[in-house]
Design a binder for these strands. Sequence first.
DNA 1: AGCTCAACCTGCTGGC
DNA 2: TGCCAGCAGGTTGAGC
Length: 274
Amino acid sequence: MPELPEVEVSRLGISPHLINQCIKSIIVRQKQLRWPIPDEIQQAVGLEVIDVRRRAKYLMIDTEAGSIILHLGMSGKLRVIESSNAPQKHDHVDIVLENGQCLRYNDPRRFGACLWHPHTAIEKQEPHPLMVNLGPEPLTDAFDSQRLYDLSRGKTKAVKNFIMDNHVVVGVGNIYASEALFFSGIDPRKAAAKVSKKRYQSLTDEIKKVLAHAITQGGTTLKDFAQTDGKPGYFAQELQVYGRAGKPCNRCQSPIESVVIGQRNSFYCPKCQL
DNA sequence: AGCTCAACCTGCTGGC
DNA sequence: TGCCAGCAGGTTGAGC
């Protein structure tokens, strides 16, 4: 379900309920996610939540002793509810607060993760191993067209795969990759090395625009994404190409086409994207 | 080094 | 109505 906008919407939704609250208990009903949930996560019990941060599609719930790292995978959802609410199917983890509320993590496909990153004295500033090799955040100045251009030289893979590579830039998933390529008029199948500097400038701008705008709309709800208050994301109705195979392009009326690139279904307008 | 592909898991949809 | 194949927002790691 989540790309970067959906994760950021989740962060914005949960953080005011968590920050400065004390963790009373952590209930793990299903520890077998992408990786097993480590028992060390219990080190957060009794501590106050200092901050809720996001890096790429990871959420970090910071305490004095370390951070709980959450990843929503394909189907993960977070909600803040009364901890007395009966758990439903696939409600794998509760982070229960002393005020009676809890952060409940639900993930049918269990592609997500819930990990613990201790702040030991020696490695207090060390990032988690999962985050060591991540590229820049797309909504910061560290992500610019020069970087895309430089890294793309010699790359034969499709430009869509290239911008979805977390070493290049994080947070661009299958939906927004297709959308940004549409707005910049680039054929998603084109080899990354064959895209000009000028077009990487456009692509960089469009990636930033589409992600930032999707965040303001509460993300994209396709099947089951919900904001943490249960409302759907409203960006789905603004999608130009994703999921619109056979429907007319909003710019030129040509039928949108779909093609599999790097195992992922991809959508583009054959007239607007060259 | 760079690229492709299988794998992780459940649920939903569409065709027969 | 039922069954089964195919597909889904992500990421890692094996293998070429």
